[in-house]
Nucleic acid binder design. Structure first.
Length: 413
DNA sequence: CGCGTGACGGTTGAA
DNA sequence: GTTTCAACCGTCACG
């Protein structure tokens, strides 16, 4: 669990802000004890800002490299006041990104493709105008999990105190009223009710004993006792497999068939929305919102210039791959959404002439950034070898995939 | 200079 | 409907 912040860094602190260079405060020399460095103020642009930004959309946006003038709504100001009516920010390389949101799949795919062509990550970073940290992360993830997809964002961890577990706890308690919580925990493990991944904590067991079972209250109607506790090993309506501690690198190598990750599939592809085709309406609405002159859609994945219109025209399905597939790629990827469809819109990363922020889109032929001194390699970057990446659009495991660095513990001391 | 890594501000979605 | 929480994201800068 995330450490309780003694210094709530999320709170807009007064100490932050100002010129980052001037405010280069005490930087812990040692890596381990590195102090939080002062960050330059970020002119935040939310992906949730209401549309109709009054023509600000698409305009070149300055980024925080310019220190906010004194008195300007800096980091201490309410976030809502800091937002501008645009979507996306521009990174140091001139690329557009949406803070907090994954890069489009097309970009992710290009990163992997270029890496497979032998292009160095630093060059990929410059070409695609994606930070090298992001390139590194995506490539590392791909090599580790075989997937280029981002992880599942949001949601909550699956509950471990399933009805079956509660029932077992109740049984244990009834069988031995003096049993300790830790003993119950051990028995849950010993009896195979839980495994080490989903066994409740002692405190959870104590809470169950206190709240759900009470002082040996007569067991009411058994709460849908499911003897098959293994069904809850991974309580999503997906494959019942315990989350691996770490996705093992595939023995076949980076480009071989990647390991099979755990798909996050509980918002099933067979949802009512998909079945009823409601997405069609959503798609049309998104396309409408993304028409020329309008502000960006709330989500970058829906930017017409990002995934779609750059190659197929606004509001037009890309080679039969409708938005459901794309959304699925981002949010709840469906393993069936392969690259066979992606191939038609791979040249997704066209960049405007230098001096403008790079956007994911534009004319299909302008994939190679013409601007900066970066020179594209001689190898053609067209459509080739997409089949190799066909498996790359599986969803990486939600848990256990963070082999290095893990999640973002935000430890504060 | 290239790259791995962690801090950070942000989004997201279930509880 | 709102809040909380814990997952994720990409960028940035350190080493």
């Amino acid at each position: 669990p995330r450490a309780v912040p003694t210094v709530p860094s999320r709170t807009p602190g007064g100490a932050r802000g100002g010129s980052p260079a001037a405010a280069a405060g005490p930087r812990g020399g040692g890596r381990r004890g590195r102090l939080p460095r002062p960050r330059r103020p970020r002119p935040f642009r939310s992906g949730r800002e209401p549309m109709g930004g009054g023509g600000a959309a698409g305009a070149p946006r300055q980024r925080g490299s310019l220190p906010a003038p004194p008195g300007a709504p800096g980091p201490a100001a309410p976030r809502s006041l800091c937002r501008e009516h645009t979507y996306g920010e521009v990174n140091q390389l001139g690329g557009v990104f949406v803070n907090g949101r994954p890069l489009p799949n097309a970009i992710r795919l290009r990163i992997v493709e270029l890496a497979q062509l032998g292009i160095r990550p630093c060059d990929i970073s410059r070409q695609l105008r994606v930070s090298h940290g992001c390139v590194s992360k995506i490539l590392a993830r791909y090599h580790e999990t075989g997937s280029i997809l981002p992880g599942a964002i949001g949601g909550s961890k699956p509950r471990v105190t399933t009805p079956a577990v509660v029932k077992h706890i109740r049984d244990y308690k009834q069988g031995d009223p003096g049993i300790f919580a830790w003993e119950i925990r051990d028995r849950l493990l010993a009896d195979g009710v839980c495994d080490k991944y989903n066994v409740p904590s002692v405190s959870s067991i104590s809470r169950i004993l206190r709240n759900k079972i009470g002082p040996l209250a007569p067991a009411g109607p058994p709460p849908a006792a499911l003897p098959c506790a293994h069904l809850y090993q991974y309580p999503y309506p997906g494959p019942a497999a315990p989350p691996p501690a770490k996705a093992a690198p595939h023995p076949a190598g980076p480009l071989g068939p990647p390991p099979v990750p755990l798909p996050r599939s509980w918002p099933s592809a067979h949802s009512v929305t998909n079945i009823l085709g409601i997405r069609t309406f959503v798609e049309q609405a998104g396309a409408l919102a993304g028409t020329e002159g309008a502000a960006y859609p709330p989500k970058m994945e829906e930017w017409p210039s990002v995934n779609r219109s750059g190659f197929a025209g606004p509001g037009q399905a890309v080679n039969g791959l409708d938005k459901a597939g794309m959304d699925g790629d981002i949010k709840y990827p469906q393993p069936g959404a392969g690259l066979s469809s992606m191939g038609t819109f791979l040249p997704a990363c066209a960049y405007p002439p230098s001096g403008q922020p790079g956007v994911y889109g534009g004319s299909p032929g302008a994939y190679i950034a013409p601007g900066p001194p970066w020179q594209p390699p001689a190898a053609p970057l067209g459509h080739h070898g997409h089949g190799e990446l066909a498996m790359a659009f599986k969803q990486p495991a939600r848990e256990g995939e963070r082999g290095r660095g893990g999640r973002d513990p935000r430890g504060y001391e």
